[in-house]
Design a protein around this nucleic acid. Structure first.
Lengths: 220, 220
DNA sequence: TAGATTGTTAATCGATTAACAATC
DNA sequence: TAGATTGTTAATCGATTAACAATC
């Protein structure tokens, strides 16, 4: 069958296109070409057409893509046509900021439905109207709110345990901000965001440093 | 000459290796093989050896790599043998969390030397001992502290202006948390972290949703 | 129709994996 | 020496880019 696995790099570009299409639609633009999308996204028009082609033919030759219709298609492909329920574990500095960000920026098809921390001092506190619950009940609570996405913002030492509990609670994908390689089964998808690693790798592109024996680094 | 450009994917893996090597060295482990590094990093041993080979021969055949020596080599390659000065612009929820995270986690060769916001109410406040400065003086201040790395945590509407000021202030690499494609010259390197896009793409890997015409999605 | 732009196939490029000679 | 593991070359794999026929 034509059921080929869509590469992750393609999936990661879809929300970029979706955002642009929603902006265009909000501005009253009804049709857009792949070259205009290229300008706005930074990806080549060929790549954009090929990305869409993974899921069928969405455009009209000689014309382009209908912004609103294509946005709806992408939403559906990404599973964002329904609200996605997410829970966040670890209400420290970063966790609190992420929670406020999610609550404060609606219209992205993501809904934060649970906030958890293991610190008794934090449990019961509110963050933008959401009460922090005890992480002791994480699995059951995640189950009860039907969360499918988990955000891990706890220290390294707790990350694996939290991931295990989230998965026990029915969570299928995890956005992991902890510097730990989570061990999960094949039915759970993990994406890591490690800010310190990002900064450290950026340091390579600073050009005032000494030249290593392989030659000077190149910027972009 | 052998001065080939090292692929970005390689550069992004180096800090992962560095972190593992530092942990091993701290635990008193003096030598490590590429297969052990593979276990801990999740990258294949062939890939690890090839990554190192971009910069020369660091190991001993039949033996492995000396943890401390290799860590120092990687530090040097990444430009982390000296402290890297970074400034952060936008002291909202996320910016404050990032600042606290950087100050609170020393030993990563990164030093936060400036905090900026355009909101007069925030200017003068302290975050973990660092005083928030006015973003009006961003370019001059970045110059004076010799910051080479800039962190952008402002709303979309201000992001481009902040990037321009940072670059005017000598910043060569930017970690951009705003949902904006920054326009920068070829001498500035930008990496984007867009949390909302990450979450939206994760939604694709949630498997309880309806099947699109290209077939059901595959987890990992 | 003529002009424009998609959808798709072919060519290219680059990264990963496999294999193995070098060598400690 | 024998066993182990690196460094490097070759093979494979996958993604991007180029080209163009299809068609609105």
């Amino acid at each position: 069958m034509g059921t080929r696995k869509v590469p992750e790099v393609v999936i990661r570009r879809l929300p970029v296109y979706l955002r642009i299409l929603e902006e265009l639609a909000a501005d009253g633009v009804e049709v857009v070409s792949s070259s205009e999308l290229s300008l706005r996204s930074g990806h080549s028009s060929e790549q954009i057409r090929k990305d869409f082609a993974h899921f069928g033919a969405f455009g009209t030759r000689g014309v382009g893509y209908r912004t609103r219709a294509l946005a709806r298609r992408l939403e559906r492909i990404l599973g964002l046509d329904r609200q996605r329920n997410a829970v966040l574990v670890g209400v420290g500095n970063l966790g609190t900021a992420l929670a406020r960000y999610l609550v404060g920026h609606p219209g992205h098809h993501m809904r934060l439905v649970g906030l958890f921390d293991r610190d008794p001092d934090r449990v019961g506190q509110e963050v933008d109207g959401l009460e922090v619950q005890s992480a002791d009940d994480l699995a059951e609570s995640a189950l009860s709110v039907e969360a499918r996405i988990g955000i891990v913002a706890v220290p390294a030492s707790q990350a694996q345990k939290v991931a295990d509990d989230l998965i026990a609670g029915g969570v299928q994908t995890i956005l992991n901000f902890s510097p730990v390689k989570l061990r999960v089964g094949a039915d759970c998808f993990v994406r890591n965001i490690d800010i310190m690693l990002e900064l450290q790798s950026l340091s390579y592109y600073v050009s005032d440093r000494e030249i290593s024996r392989s030659g000077k680094p190149h910027g972009r």
